[in-house]
Amino acid sequence: MSVRTRIALVSDTHMPHRGKDLPKALFEGIAGVDLILHAGDWTAPYVVDLFASIAPVDGVTGNNDDAEIYSRFGRRKLLTVDGTRIGLVHGDGFARPTEETARRSFSKEDVDLIVFGHSHTPWKGELNGVLLFNPGSAMDKRREPRYSYGILEIGSSGFTVKHSYYSDKT
């Protein structure tokens, strides 16, 4: 597949509580992407500028974000990038697994991929015929062995999405 567009997928940075700057491994890993999509829980507006120093940024609000982030991004969005329809949502909700909450957020839309966060757990799978992807957390791995983010590559014959991992967030 000839790659036309590379998109970094991040979530749950929880800054500055989990660090004041982007980890070197994350910064280097997403350098050169065409777009960065953040699935919420930025927790500080300056984080947008950190990512914007790398590439254009879009995102959604997570359950830990304030009104400034909400007014800038909203809670959910549907984007079409290079012909691929991407649903973006944080995924917080009640009484169901995060991936089910994310899928229900776009149950009435025709999407190719849903990107979500909230659980801090890297996850990739299909629900009701739609690919879902949680990049995990770039700054707060909780019970996971490593920090993570995702890379979405869109090309002439479709798209691929994969996790990237790192152990040191300095």
Rank of each mutant, 00 (worst) to 15 (best):
F106V: 02
F106L: 07
F106H: 02
F106R: 04
F106I: 05
S107A: 15
S107R: 14
S107Q: 09
S107G: 09
S107N: 04
S107P: 00
S107K: 11
K108P: 05
K108Y: 14
K108E: 13
K108W: 12
K108A: 10
E109C: 05
D110I: 06
D110A: 15
D110K: 15
D110H: 06
V111F: 06
V111C: 08
V111L: 08
V111W: 04
V111Q: 03
D112N: 15
D112G: 05
L113Y: 04
L113D: 03
L113E: 00
L113Q: 01
L113H: 07
I114C: 03
I114R: 00
I114E: 00
I114G: 00
I114L: 01
I114V: 14
I114M: 08
V115W: 01
V115I: 11
V115N: 00
F116D: 02
F116R: 02
F116W: 00
F116T: 01
G117Q: 04
G117R: 03
G117C: 08
G117D: 05
G117P: 04
H118V: 09
H118C: 06
S119M: 05
S119Y: 04
S119V: 05
S119T: 07
S119H: 09
S119W: 08
H120F: 09
H120G: 07
H120Q: 08
H120T: 14
H120I: 09
H120R: 12
T121R: 11
T121E: 12
P122N: 10
P122F: 11
P122M: 08
W123K: 07
W123Q: 08
W123E: 11
K124T: 09
K124Y: 01
G125Q: 06
E126W: 01
E126T: 04
E126R: 00
E126N: 03
L127P: 01
L127C: 02
L127N: 01
L127W: 01
N128S: 13
N128G: 13
N128L: 05
N128A: 15
G129H: 08
G129P: 09
V130K: 05
V130F: 02
V130C: 02
L131M: 07
L131T: 05
L131C: 07
L131D: 00
L131N: 01
L131G: 00
L131H: 00
L131V: 05
L132N: 10
L132T: 01
F133E: 04
F133Y: 07
F133M: 09
F133T: 04
N134C: 10
N134Y: 03
N134V: 01
N134T: 03
N134P: 09
P135N: 13
P135Y: 09
G136D: 13
G136W: 11
G136E: 10
G136S: 12
G136A: 15
G136V: 14
S137D: 11
S137Q: 14
S137M: 15
S137A: 15
S137I: 14
A138I: 13
A138H: 12
A138T: 14
M139F: 12
M139D: 13
M139I: 10
M139Y: 11
M139R: 13
D140V: 13
